[in-house]
Design a protein around this nucleic acid. Structure first.
Lengths: 111, 111
DNA sequence: AACATTAATCGTAATATTGCAATATAATAA
DNA sequence: TTATTATATTGCAATATTACGATTAATGTT
């Protein structure tokens, strides 16, 4: 159906999957990497840098803004986007908790 | 179009987004968390644990297996699924490189 | 005012994802 | 052999995502 049954899962599970979904497109990964690299940006740069059409980039930026990973300041006719450091840190903490789970190494069935 | 233009991005960007896409559904997060918790598993457990229909769980397991995060051993009529530790570690390394990027903190435009 | 520039929004087409009923497959039990 | 049990596969309907042309909105420039 294409409709995720979010209500069946814990808040943590939904939070993790929502974060992951944002990273689940190479254009958004590329945008974030570029923002990290130059540490300041405008949308036009990204259109040239990444090669997708301007409306497509704008749409991806909107997704990133919606989850709070980036923020944008309007400066004249252009918009300056950059990483939202506080939210990035919070997101990292959530993901690390999930990724850094350790196994007790006592599963004899799959070794 | 729903068709990601993967060829426009670096191998690293595609790798990160492919990993993230797997985590981009709460059912798959729940499956992985459960596998970590009990450190051994069969599919039937997951159907009860998670509450989605058996074919749906089976489909999610297939995704997880495809990316190598889990592996399954056939034992009689049931299949024992568990985390693939080596691949999990490799995946973690890739994601950490991306997540732990640091900002030079010299962006004056968005502060 | 008239035009240029930049980014957002709208509308739409194409593809992907999710979920499940029905069915198939495979191994075991009776 | 005939159930029974456990999981996979198929087929399909519904929703989501991706991409972009056309347009709009907002600001800046001449």
């Amino acid at each position: 159906m294409g409709l995720t049954k979010s209500e069946m899962f814990t808040e943590e599970q939904n939070e993790i999957s929502n974060i992951a979904k944002v990273f689940g497109h190479p254009a958004r990964v590329a945008i974030l990497q570029h923002l990290f690299k130059i540490d300041t940006c405008i949308c036009g740069d990204l259109v040239n840098e990444i090669g997708l059409a301007q409306p497509t980039i704008s749409q991806h930026l909107k997704e990133l803004k919606k989850t709070g990973l980036i923020k944008g300041n309007i400066t004249g006719t252009s918009v300056c986007y950059c990483i939202d450091k506080a939210n990035w840190s919070a997101m990292k903490k959530t993901l690390h908790l999930f990724l850094d789970q350790d196994l007790q190494d006592n599963n004899t069935c799959c070794s």
